[in-house]
Design a protein around this nucleic acid. Structure first.
Lengths: 182, 182
DNA sequence: TCAAGTCGGTACCGACCAGTACCGTCTCCG
DNA sequence: CGGAGACGGTACTGGTCGGTACCGACTTGA
């Protein structure tokens, strides 16, 4: 557990929002899990929404770094990301991703949290596009959008199915698409 | 607007839960939109959760009938469902589907509402499987799971992108998969 | 005509929500 | 040793949550 109150709050937010929902988790529970006092919370964050935003930024950063590492490790093969996703699904029962959850819980397109979640997805598309272009795919833009659709579809499927199956299915689909449009 | 209080409540639930979220919409708003008195609400439904469950059952029924009609209209071509989905996306700014929303807002797998939402998705897979088998696909089971992954991926994409593009993308992917595994 | 059932309106309940104010304590650093 | 800042604990606010109780008005059918 991190030493400073702020980091403990963000860690608790990631854990609880992820496992139970954002609206469903009150400040009280965040305080109990993080061991932070009520006043300290509002010393570090003007409001609960600001904590959510900070959590989202951390999620964006770590998820994309993790994805980039997985692709790089596979010799810049973009389809390898689905293997990494399968690993992730297999190790912990995935309950959606922070971005999808935020887009659904804060459904108003103008809401700052909704916009932050959308920005994350668009950044992932941009990453995918770069990797696919670097791999020499002429159809990199379309493929990037298709890959994100597969990732999101796999995440939603993982809400129902246990284990790595949804990610493995997405990988089979991605491979077929790469072969078909080569 | 339906004459009876119960039907007005279900109609308001479908509209509000869909556009603003389930937890985000309180009983008060349901009453205001439906024009139903507070007491009448609890005469027809023991709790808010029961209204949600009723709404989900209606969604399951109507969505699957609509999907079946779209497939039948296209001469039992399962891939045609993505055209129907594109139509649906184009006409109204889709804000997720009731089932995905419920699985995310009530994330505990043991929760009755979560289970009802999962049952809907599994029923859609069963429908897809039947249509694909009837179309003579030997790989109908795998394809059915893949099609639902595409549908869910398209719905999540539609949270960000306006219009029919996500469904059209999913259709291109479905066609490629059908051709590749034929 | 009259009783039964359905209805909308409203006052109210305890519980919880996000956010504020103030407390005493601990740690760290000069 | 001493002061400053970060901290956890708690009491509190106004507002909203889901749910209950009771009211009078309306419709319906015998």
């Amino acid at each position: 557990m991190p030493a400073h109150a702020r980091e403990r709050l963000v860690a608790a937010a990631e854990e609880l929002f992820y496992e139970e929902g954002i609206r469903a988790v009150g400040v009280e529970r965040l305080l109990a899990v993080s061991g932070v006092g009520r006043a300290s919370f509002y010393r570090h964050f003007p409001s609960k929404d600001d904590l959510i935003l900070t959590m989202l930024r951390g999620y964006d950063e770590r998820f994309r770094e993790w994805l980039a590492a997985a692709v790089a490790e596979a010799g810049d093969d973009p389809a390898a990301l689905f293997d990494a996703l399968a690993d992730r699904f297999d190790r912990s029962a995935l309950r959606g991703c922070a971005s999808i959850r935020t887009m659904i819980e804060f459904v108003d397109p103008g809401h700052p949290l909704h916009r932050a979640a959308v920005a994350h997805k668009e950044a992932v598309i941009a990453d995918l596009d770069r990797w696919l272009a670097a791999a020499g795919r002429a159809d990199h833009a379309e493929l990037a959008a298709q890959f994100l659709l597969l990732i999101d579809g796999a995440i939603v499927s993982a809400l129902r199915e246990r284990g790595a199956a949804p990610a493995q299915r997405a990988k089979r689909m991605a491979s077929a698409l790469l072969a078909a449009q080569a």
